[in-house]
Amino acid sequence: MGQQIAFHKADQLKVKPDPEHLGFGRHFTDYMLEMDYSVDDGWHDARIVPYGPITLQPAATVFHYGQEVFEGMKAYRAEDGRILLFRPEMNMRRMNQSCARLNIPAIDEAFVTEAIMKLVDIEKDWIPSKPGQSLYIRPFIIGTESFLGVHPAESYKLIVILSPVGAYFGDTVNPVKIYVEDEYVRAVRGGIGFAKTGGNYAASLKAQSKAEELGFDQVLWLDGVEHKYVEEVGSMNIFFKVDGEVWTPALNGSILPGVTRDSVIRLLQHWGVPVKEKKISVKKLFKKAEKQKLEEVFGTGTAAVISPVGFLKWEDRLIRVGNGEIGPLSKKLYETLTGIQTGRLEDELGWMQEVSSEETAVAD
């Protein structure tokens, strides 16, 4: 894979959206990154091109056999003007783990990170600066070979698109209501639950609609075999503060290894807060709640960062967590992570990478 990145300038740039009404994933920047893969050439032809439609054959692998992976990252504008990425090496490492499971050729993690940084640098004027805002980065890979038959494609396309976003759940960090799903199954050990691929999210849509009809924001999945043990929320990993300890489900092959999840565990350890990765019985959690020992519940993810949980419903039981508001530990984690990400707090753990303006793209 060569180290040059071609840059194809757009004839006309877009009008940027109102920063007061960004929402999440609704607006897209002027440019995107593309690369192609073939058996003969490997990953090649890295280029930054105007954002727009892509052309695929109707028999492309991605449409029929779901050969696809993606990632979610963010770029932040610090108060001193620097542009920062949060632990991008972990996203690239996880993307290759997903690729391995979906039988997609591995990417050069360092080069794709460099290419993403160049794209972000070109689009830096799109990065919003109000609290809770950022530039969402969505890399994805799709199988493009045109054939009908169940075997891995021989050609692929990597694309990275950017979207200026506000806070995932709105302007304030309000606790969400979680519905514990005990009918449908999202993933099982040995499957693709740990990979970041569209099939996992497609499997969650029916239960998510059911939860929303019942007045809940998100679904908390149980294990797919016994339906007894907590796994993750549809768009987040999950944590419980129980009697002074923090618990989170252990990675078991059906849970996404979240970047924010890992960061929270490391922060808690750094602070000396007891944290355990373990099998967590939903029945045990509700018993702890009855004894007033379930102190806080929160989800973690790139989009929401920290999302406190105010209510949990399982079968015919509904519990309120704490006083239904964000707990002190959840608040501290949110303020610390967002403070590090935006450069307001010292990056003691060395997580942030600065986007430089060095000329690495070659204009056409």
Rank of each mutant, 00 (worst) to 15 (best):
F194M: 14
G143E: 11
V246A: 02
D121K: 08
I326W: 00
S155V: 06
P152H: 10
V173H: 03
V160Y: 04
L337Q: 05
E213D: 14
S235E: 10
E346M: 08
A195E: 12
A303E: 05
F70V: 08
C99A: 13
L345Y: 10
E354C: 05
I122G: 01
I141D: 09
T336A: 02
R317D: 06
N323Q: 13
I306Y: 00
I116Y: 06
R93L: 05
S235K: 04
R266Y: 13
K276E: 13
D36E: 09
P131D: 12
N91P: 01
G170L: 07
P257W: 09
G343P: 04
E226V: 02
K283V: 06
V150D: 02
L13F: 07
K177W: 02
D243T: 03
I326S: 13
K124G: 00
G310Q: 01
V297Y: 02
A153E: 11
Q218Y: 10
G234L: 06
N96W: 08
V188W: 07
E315C: 00
P152V: 11
T338A: 02
I104E: 08
G198T: 14
S155Y: 05
K9L: 07
Y156D: 09
F28H: 09
V112L: 14
V173Y: 07
L345W: 03
G215T: 08
H27D: 09
E232R: 02
V180W: 01
K293Q: 15
I142D: 03
F86G: 01
I306F: 00
V362M: 04
L220M: 15
H227S: 10
K16R: 15
G234R: 02
W43D: 04
G52E: 13
N96M: 06
M73T: 04
E212A: 08
E290Y: 05
K177C: 01
L337F: 11
V275E: 10
M32I: 10
V219E: 11
G343T: 10
R26P: 00
M92P: 01
H8E: 11
Y65W: 14
A211V: 03
H44P: 03
L345N: 12
V246T: 13
T197M: 03
I48H: 02
F111R: 14
D45K: 12
P249F: 06
T342F: 01
V120L: 02
A167S: 15
M73S: 10
V259D: 04
E346W: 08
V225S: 07
G132V: 03
V173Q: 06
V242H: 00
Q218D: 15
G2W: 08
K118N: 10
V309T: 06
P139I: 08
I238V: 15
I326M: 15
L158N: 03
A78K: 08
V297E: 01
K332G: 00
N103E: 15
Y229W: 13
A203P: 00
V273Q: 13
Q67I: 14
L345K: 14
P17M: 14
E315A: 11
S204Q: 09
A304R: 00
K331H: 10
S235G: 06
V165C: 14
H64S: 12
T336I: 11
